[in-house]
Design a binder for these strands. Sequence first.
DNA 1: TTTGGCATATAACAATTGTTACTCTGAGTG
DNA 2: CACTCAGAGTAACAATTGTTATATGCCAAA
Lengths: 264, 264
Amino acid sequence: MSSGLEQVSGGRLASSGGSRHHHHPIVRKLARLVPLTEADTAALGQLSASMRQVAAHTDLVHEGAPLTEAVLVLQGFAIRYQLRDTGARQILAYLVPGDLCDPDAALLGELDCTISTLSACFVARVPQGVLSDILEQHPNVARGLRLAKLIEEATTRCWLTNAGCRSALERMAHLLCELQVRLQVVGFATEDGYELPITQHDLGDTLGLSNVHVNRTLRVLREQRLIEHHGKQLTILDLPRLQEIAEFKPGYLRSTASHARLPL
Amino acid sequence: MSSGLEQVSGGRLASSGGSRHHHHPIVRKLARLVPLTEADTAALGQLSASMRQVAAHTDLVHEGAPLTEAVLVLQGFAIRYQLRDTGARQILAYLVPGDLCDPDAALLGELDCTISTLSACFVARVPQGVLSDILEQHPNVARGLRLAKLIEEATTRCWLTNAGCRSALERMAHLLCELQVRLQVVGFATEDGYELPITQHDLGDTLGLSNVHVNRTLRVLREQRLIEHHGKQLTILDLPRLQEIAEFKPGYLRSTASHARLPL
DNA sequence: TTTGGCATATAACAATTGTTACTCTGAGTG
DNA sequence: CACTCAGAGTAACAATTGTTATATGCCAAA
């Protein structure tokens, strides 16, 4: 009953022979950033050729491992994180459907953080060769992915501002607003909310808060009738006010259509 | 009496006609990352052609402004920061001598943060054209700058981990250790310490702490005989222990010579 | 169906960090 | 030289957040 990617069947895209790739999250995402031709769209569809399902809390790429493939998330929530010696975990980024991680790290040879799933996910491993071929033959796609990378960096900076100078309530509100925009771009959120299949402990490791304080903070948001959540379903009751609390300025996500046309 | 860049005179490099650029901070920095030929080194020297002195606390590039030039720091401390509506400032990165900021942002068209000086600085503005010519003609330099960019990103992630899951003392220790390594690479630090010409308020905006708590934290480090500071001069009395407190792992800075040969 | 375990929820208390207010010093300036 | 002011230093108190403990609910495995 989860939204999106209804064409998943047996670990393969049922429609992989056809040309209708417009619903692929990475296509939806890049189409906001650059104009895409049918050929571009089809090429992006190839990225998910080796899609497979991964259980929640599974490491995909370990810190320090040599990196030869990129990881494309098609469904579910994945993260990049670092571990301290104390066992504390800092989540550095969320990877939601349409996010491609991390083509560039090949230059450094290894990654300084670990890629893992938070929820059950559909992910595709993309060999460097396949990716570089596409980048070469599809300059629009190449430009789109470079833009996406810059947006990811801006998002990291935003998270640093979050951690450095926002209160727990503001931080939580900001994260919920950011996810609302990012998930809506790829069709995994409506205007009212989205499925947030992660624990309060995970939220704590994201925001630099204890799980208890995450719980307190969510309660405040609930009591103020800003959000509701039943199970994994998050409903945003008052988005404007939530954004106001968070001082959320979505510009850094480049999510408005003003920056590019949609594909024909 | 400040160390490094003794050749500064009248806003120009006195030796700009010669070929001895090895002492330039950006040359020292990149030489750790990639092999550099004499030609590469000379080309890097050109970057500081339009060097000028800038007073402390001067904005160089404003948030939202169209970006047509990169900024190269030759001496002093500069930063990237974001402002909240409340007036709170989050410092996102330090730009120390040898750091080049931000060639890539041209793709996005505008920057999401402001570049500013903390101390009096010598900086050079590098027009996009000059930079792209050099990148084209000197692949080693291009590769070095790409590596430097990746290192900068890793540093930002590290700062996020800092803010998210380290105590004030650990955060401060980590910052001091990081600067020790970065400044030593470009010849602005000895093994014992370095000049740190920034206020406790600035440190607070860096670490997400109040200025009062910064003061407390520095006092603890002093009382434990880990550091000393008289005026702007920071002396590190016990680097191993400071690194231990910070859980500092310098790998992300790629500062050890094991990754590349020095130029002939 | 029962059970075990994980996630949520909440309370009481502790620790960290922020805020306000004040003093002191030193560098720059008239 | 006196004056000003920014920055460092400190204390007292307040607010936020973390820790520990315990209870509850719910889903999945036996």
